[in-house]
């Protein structure tokens, strides 16, 4: 029985799942391909439209989904550690609102080139999160102050986005589908921006797991051990923001992966929150986020839902339901 909970088994299962879904992504699309064909074309580009689509559309779309999911999950985990609260979600830092506003600004005022959109999103997210941190610094980042400051900052930037949409109605139309989140039309241009940010932030996060682990202890204890809690909180929060900002700038404000993935993993590993080493939890959470997002995107592609269900909708519905199920258990496990 213990084998099922073994981290390596879980990691292997998740990775296998990701590979399967990836292959599924490569196969599915308007230009029908069988799996064998897709595999062939993946390695031998024969210049046909099908090969083109495989390399330029399906593959980067899937990769974007994988990396975005991993980024959001990791971001959520970091927030949960920093606020020491299992109900953390990347959007709590205000980063989603800020990223949305950045994108809205560029789409309205400038040309919608990928590099301007993504960098504006990242910048906007970081600015918003910085404001949140500045507002909450007195509370040492773990209080409800931070949570509510983040939400207030989000409201501000979303209001600013609404103002833009109302004053320039074409932006309202362009931002419709962007805001619901999805991976249609996201290709190598987006991925080129995404992967360096995610990999860097992810690696940095892995490097500091020991310090982050300390943050789960009571502040007094941690400081007694010589840990500068304020500093590490800030670093952790900064990484969380960068990850989330990059993800949102590419895929739109997809909610909940960040909240849900860490919990799914904790449940899978079946340990007390404090006893799971972060060096294990982190990579697994990233894998979990990746597979969830990839799965949602695959469902969006595969299910005959017609016009109306980009990945973002499915993620919201799934995340919402999962939250409700998990919330009771999380609440009862949380020491008050």
């Amino acid at each position: 029985m213990n084998d099922l909970r073994h981290p390596l088994v879980i990691a292997a299962t998740l990775s296998a799942g990701i590979v399967v879904l990836l292959l599924g992504h490569l196969q599915i699309g308007a230009l029908h391909t069988s799996l064998a064909e897709a595999w062939q074309l993946l390695w031998n580009d024969d210049g046909s439209n099908t090969a083109f689509v495989l390399h330029e559309v399906r593959l980067p779309r899937a990769l974007n989904a994988v990396f975005t999911g991993a980024a959001l999950a990791l971001s959520g985990l970091l927030i949960q550690i920093i606020t020491r609260n299992p109900l953390g979600d990347p959007g709590l830092t205000g980063v989603t609102g800020g990223a949305t506003f950045g994108v809205a600004l560029v789409i309205t005022l400038l040309q919608p080139a990928t590099w301007t959109v993504v960098s504006a999103g990242v910048l906007g997210g970081c600015v918003a999160a910085t404001i949140t941190f500045t507002l909450a610094r007195g509370g040492g980042f773990r209080d409800i102050q931070m949570v509510l400051s983040g939400v207030a900052v989000s409201i501000f930037f979303l209001a600013a986005t609404s103002a833009l949409m109302i004053l320039e109605r074409s932006s309202m139309q362009s931002l419709y589908y962007w805001m619901i989140g999805g991976f249609s039309g996201k290709g190598w241009a987006e991925f080129a921006w995404l992967w360096p940010m995610i990999v860097t932030a992810g690696l940095l996060a892995l490097m500091i797991t020991r310090m982050l682990q300390m943050l789960l202890l009571e502040d007094a204890v941690a400081r007694g051990l010589g840990v500068r809690t304020g500093l590490w909180r800030l670093i952790g929060a900064g990484l969380s923001v960068l990850l989330a900002a990059a993800a949102v700038a590419v895929a739109g404000p997809i909610a909940f992966i960040g909240f849900v993935a860490p919990h799914i993993m904790r449940k899978a590993l079946d340990g007390d929150r404090k006893s799971i080493p972060l060096s294990i939890l982190m990579p697994l959470t990233a894998l979990c986020g990746a597979i969830l997002t990839l799965g949602a995107d695959f469902a969006a592609l595969a299910l005959p839902l017609g016009n109306r269900a980009p990945a973002g909708v499915l993620v919201t519905l799934f995340g919402g339901m999962t939250f409700l199920v998990l919330a009771r258990q999380v609440m009862s496990r949380q020491s008050s």
């Binding site: 040309q111 919608p112 959109v117 074409s170 932006s171 290709g187 190598w188 241009a189």
Partner: peptide
């Protein structure tokens, strides 16, 4: 293009 001007590029 409702906003006028260029549309977002895509290799397609």
């Amino acid at each position: 293009a409702s906003h006028g001007g260029p549309i977002k590029a895509n290799p397609i």
